[in-house]
Simulated assay, not measured.
Amino acid sequence: MKLILFDCDGTLVDSQHIIVAAMERAFDAEGFPAPERTAILGIIGLSLPQAVGALVGAEHVGEVPRVVEAYKNSFRDLRADAAHHEPLFPGIEALLHDLHRADDLLLGIVTGKSRRGVDMVLKRFELEGRFATIQTADDAPSKPHPGMVEQALAETGAERQATVVIGDTSFDMQMAKSAGVTAIGVGWGYHPVEALVAAGCDHMCSNVDSLRAAIADTVGWTRSDG
């Protein structure tokens, strides 16, 4: 079986607005100046404690748990506001549908989100049951550590040479290369294309059509565009 592992934020769903808003609220609630938007986008993909730690700096490492909790509370409140819903990127729903129909492919998720956050996204878009393995910040070390990929391989029995990680950040590419699997970068997310290339991505895709082609070329998927 071939295993296609997707990052979530910035790859499947456009969550930048709610993440930035929640982080700004959390920092304000704990008396810190809000980070620049570009700085917040730069840490998307890391697990939450690592992301907050990078933003507050080493001198405030003791404050990380409080800011993390404030972020969780802010994110929960914002999620109830329709203006902050996380939409799927254009073309992603159809791509997942077509990949899921292939008899020789398994789909998975490797993400810095919590399992609860992933479950809510899947429920909102009626994607439950599409993914054979879901690895989250609750289950493994933060990216770029290869633990999420290693656990996905163990859970599904897939071989490394038949496994692909698809993501929008340098953390995704580094994780894939550390795990010895193919790294496919997407250019519609939150890290600059140059960062993904520097991190060692094997393919760089500018849109879902080029992602379809990269998956087909990498794992031998017989494409279905309809």
Rank of each mutant, 00 (worst) to 15 (best):
F27N: 06
A179I: 05
E86W: 09
V68H: 08
Y190C: 03
A39N: 07
M175Y: 05
A22K: 09
T182I: 13
V208W: 02
E93C: 05
H203L: 07
A152K: 02
V186A: 01
T133C: 10
A80Y: 11
D172C: 07
V67Q: 03
G10L: 06
L3R: 06
V121Q: 10
D119F: 09
E59M: 07
K72N: 14
P49V: 08
V56M: 07
A154N: 11
A198K: 14
F171D: 00
L5V: 06
L127K: 02
D98C: 13
K177Y: 04
A216R: 12
Q50Y: 05
Q174K: 14
A183T: 07
I40T: 13
F75C: 10
I43W: 03
F171A: 06
R223G: 12
T133K: 03
S224E: 14
L105E: 04
V64P: 09
L153E: 03
P87K: 10
P35K: 01
M120H: 12
H84A: 10
A162Q: 15
M204I: 15
D209Q: 13
G112W: 05
M173N: 04
T163N: 11
E63L: 12
P146A: 10
V208E: 04
V164L: 15
V110N: 08
L107S: 00
P146C: 11
R116H: 14
P35D: 03
F131N: 00
K113A: 05
Q135F: 00
V61A: 15
S114A: 14
F89N: 09
R160N: 08
R101K: 14
E194K: 14
T156P: 11
A22M: 13
Q16R: 12
L96G: 00
L48M: 14
P65A: 13
G157T: 11
H60G: 04
F131W: 05
R76M: 14
K72Y: 11
L3S: 07
A102R: 14
L48A: 09
T38G: 00
P90L: 07
L99S: 02
Q151I: 01
N73P: 02
M1F: 10
D119C: 08
G108K: 00
H84I: 06
S47F: 01
A179D: 05
D7V: 02
D28L: 09
P141E: 12
A29G: 07
S47V: 02
A179Y: 05
A21E: 15
A152N: 02
V186S: 01
A83I: 05
A94F: 09
S170R: 12
A158D: 10
G53C: 10
A195G: 00
K143M: 06
V219Q: 11
L107K: 00
